[in-house]
Computed example of a mutant assay.
Amino acid sequence: MTTAAATFSLILLNGGVGARVGAGQPKQLLKLRGIPILVYTLVTADRLPQVGQIVVNFPEGWRREIEEVLDAYAISTPITLVPGAPTRHSSVREMLPHCEYDQVLLHESARPLATSADFTRLIDSPWQNVALMSPIPFTVAPVDPETHMVTGSLDRARLRNVQLPQKFRRSDLVAAHEKALSEGIEYTEDATLVADAGFPVHFLDGSDTNLKVTSPTDVRMATVLLQGERDRDV
């Protein structure tokens, strides 16, 4: 659903195959409660009046199946389909030129439990660049993978588990990707990318239920969590 108040493009990362799930198809097409994983974020975004465009990428060879999902669930927000790139980092970079708005929300279809409240908190935040992040509930340590040596210690209180969705000023995100490209650096997510490029990035506390579906166990956990939601109407 869009109105004149729309000020955001949503980049929805959807180009991975998700081989670890072992389903013989992209994991975003797997069904939770009888509904493709991809649909949960699409429906959530479709209900946000601030989102005027959704840019979705797709795995090579799977465009028709993604289009069938979009048609079946009658998403009213304008959608731009973009071929998937070799990496997550390059996918965002190649989707950015298709964004029509000066503000960007970034999410991935593999996180179907992100709610409209999660997106709204980012949208309403006074910060231009902000990500959901959650405390790390376990101890982590820096190591040398080659020697199997522990090389020091890390203060858990100063670390966060990076989540999505995230919000960025489009020009900041574009500049950060251009800088990374010129330096030959690839990132696994964009909050640290933008921060390393010299732009201020803030965080809001996320939720431990906003999990990323990457394995069969995650599929089962997401199904249970979705069954517990009474306000999710997809």
Score class of each variant (00 low, 15 high):
10 L>V: 06
12 L>T: 01
12 L>H: 06
13 L>A: 05
13 L>T: 06
15 G>Q: 10
16 G>V: 01
16 G>L: 08
17 V>T: 13
17 V>I: 15
18 G>N: 12
18 G>D: 12
19 A>K: 14
19 A>D: 11
19 A>H: 11
21 V>M: 14
22 G>S: 11
23 A>S: 13
24 G>C: 11
24 G>W: 15
25 Q>C: 09
26 P>N: 10
29 L>Y: 15
31 K>Q: 15
36 P>Q: 06
36 P>G: 05
36 P>F: 02
38 L>V: 06
42 L>V: 04
43 V>S: 13
45 A>Y: 11
46 D>T: 05
46 D>Y: 10
47 R>A: 13
47 R>E: 14
48 L>Q: 12
49 P>W: 15
51 V>G: 12
52 G>N: 09
53 Q>P: 04
53 Q>K: 11
54 I>C: 07
55 V>R: 13
58 F>T: 03
58 F>E: 01
59 P>I: 03
62 W>R: 10
62 W>K: 09
63 R>C: 01
64 R>T: 07
65 E>S: 03
65 E>M: 00
65 E>T: 01
66 I>P: 00
68 E>W: 00
69 V>K: 10
70 L>N: 03
70 L>R: 03
73 Y>W: 14
73 Y>A: 00
74 A>M: 03
75 I>G: 05
78 P>H: 11
79 I>Y: 08
81 L>P: 00
84 G>Q: 11
84 G>N: 09
84 G>W: 11
84 G>S: 10
86 P>K: 09
87 T>D: 07
87 T>A: 04
87 T>C: 02
87 T>P: 02
88 R>K: 09
88 R>S: 03
89 H>Y: 14
89 H>W: 15
89 H>N: 12
90 S>D: 15
90 S>W: 11
91 S>N: 07
91 S>C: 06
92 V>I: 13
93 R>G: 03
93 R>A: 09
93 R>I: 00
94 E>S: 03
96 L>G: 05
97 P>Y: 06
97 P>E: 11
98 H>K: 08
99 C>N: 09
100 E>N: 10
102 D>S: 08
102 D>R: 14
102 D>V: 00
103 Q>A: 09
105 L>A: 02
105 L>H: 03
105 L>F: 06
106 L>Y: 10
108 E>Y: 02
108 E>L: 12
109 S>I: 00
109 S>P: 03
109 S>T: 06
110 A>I: 08
112 P>A: 07
112 P>C: 07
115 T>Y: 13
118 D>W: 12
118 D>T: 02
119 F>N: 04
120 T>E: 15
120 T>Q: 15
121 R>D: 14
122 L>D: 05
122 L>M: 06
123 I>H: 07
123 I>F: 07
125 S>F: 03
126 P>H: 05
128 Q>Y: 00
128 Q>F: 01
128 Q>T: 04
129 N>F: 00
130 V>K: 05
132 L>C: 00
132 L>T: 00
134 S>Y: 10
